[in-house]
Design a protein around this nucleic acid. Structure first.
Lengths: 215, 215
DNA sequence: TTGTGTGAATCCCTTCACAGCG
DNA sequence: CGCTGTGAAGGGATTCACACAA
């Protein structure tokens, strides 16, 4: 069942399903159908079933899914049935805010330090995260087995940071700087350009375009 | 040329192209080809040309594009050849950080106020933005002709905020709360779930999947 | 009967490849 | 020539529709 090619959008949706299922668990809801999941996250029943079908049979015909079981299964698929050790680079406003972003911690992303090149910031503590000098990046990542990094430095410093990161054992990078980072193939990079989202909204408002979920 | 159906991904890419062209302008680069744009943003020459072809002829055959002209054209298409009056709702860490996010101001998104329900925050000023009580939301939006709102309140408060917004003349909402907002059709909503991006990275790291740009 | 799992069909985006123009 | 603009071809995601199981 695995190792056909999985659409990337399927992965995004699985993450959404899991987030929704976690909410249901918190509300003690035990059972759910593909249709209800679809309504909950803004998808379609066919997509929900097809997305899941890439990875196995998780439901009972005529009945639906057991919320907790399905959520565990999806978390295992995504690889978030454990903690991911994460660091932030860039102790500006956005970086500082993300240290306390509840969604990260809730889903197992544990941010243990922020790195910054500004000597005035180094040595301070933001939300229990020490701000460390950028020179210690390499040893810190190795000593603490950090796997993921979040880049929140300005655009003109981001490529330099990416270069430094590529020399460490980092596995994945979430980049908030609005540039295309050049990195070795084996490092997974996703760039999130917040402004693009507003620009897309502007376009749709201007043109009265009808749009479904996920971009 | 217009009013065929435009793929949503095309709009995202146009926004990227424009961002890249703005960088080129800052570096006094005058001319560019579809191939160079593609390399700059992580797309393909064919996509660049096809994306533009939905809206008109902007290049010269055998030559390429004039950077400044193309950028103006794209901005006009996106509807960002002007200022968009914007407010933030939720004066937490993320909301406060976004008031000083350079990318927004650079691209014409002018955040003039933050709204919050916490009386201790109301009356303070964050990055030149006054923090106002949530009860003034409706009149403020009408009096100041606000068009866009950015929601950075916790998930359990977001739907209530969305409901309040729907009673105003707001046109578009960028939502950072990880829930599906129920809103009238005529309001454009995009939800950005930061955690989903990390989860997708986790999946790809786990499975060694090969992935191209944009999701 | 209900709702899942899934091949088949459909739809839509991407890519190709070349005519056309500078 | 070189590079754009674009129909046509190709490929991949969505939707359909139904067999199957509870």
């Amino acid at each position: 069942m695995l190792d056909q090619k999985i659409p990337l959008v399927t992965i995004y949706r699985l993450a959404s399903y899991s987030g929704y299922l976690s909410d249901l668990e918190a509300n003690h809801i035990k059972h759910i159908s593909s249709r209800e999941i679809a309504v909950g996250v803004g998808s379609t029943p066919a997509k929900v079933r097809k997305d899941l079908s890439y990875f196995g049979d998780f439901g009972k015909r005529g009945v639906g899914y057991v919320v907790s079981e399905l959520n565990i299964a999806i978390k295992r698929i995504l690889g978030i049935n454990r903690t991911w050790k994460t660091i932030l680079i860039g102790a500006g406003n956005l970086g500082s805010a993300l240290t306390s972003y509840a969604g990260f911690k809730n889903r197992g992303y544990e941010i243990s330090a922020i790195f910054d090149s500004n000597p005035k910031k180094v040595g301070t503590v933001v939300n229990h995260c020490p701000v460390l000098p950028i020179d210690e990046l390499d040893t810190y990542i190795k000593d603490n087995e950090i796997e993921l990094a979040i880049i929140t430095v300005p655009a003109d410093a981001a490529q330099e940071v990416a270069h430094r990161l590529s020399a460490t054992g980092i596995k994945g990078i979430l980049n908030f700087a609005p540039i295309k980072l050049e990195l070795p193939e084996h490092i997974v990079v996703r760039t999130l350009e917040l402004t693009r989202e507003l620009e897309v909204i502007s376009f749709i408002v201007n043109h009265g375009m009808q749009v479904d979920e996920h971009a």
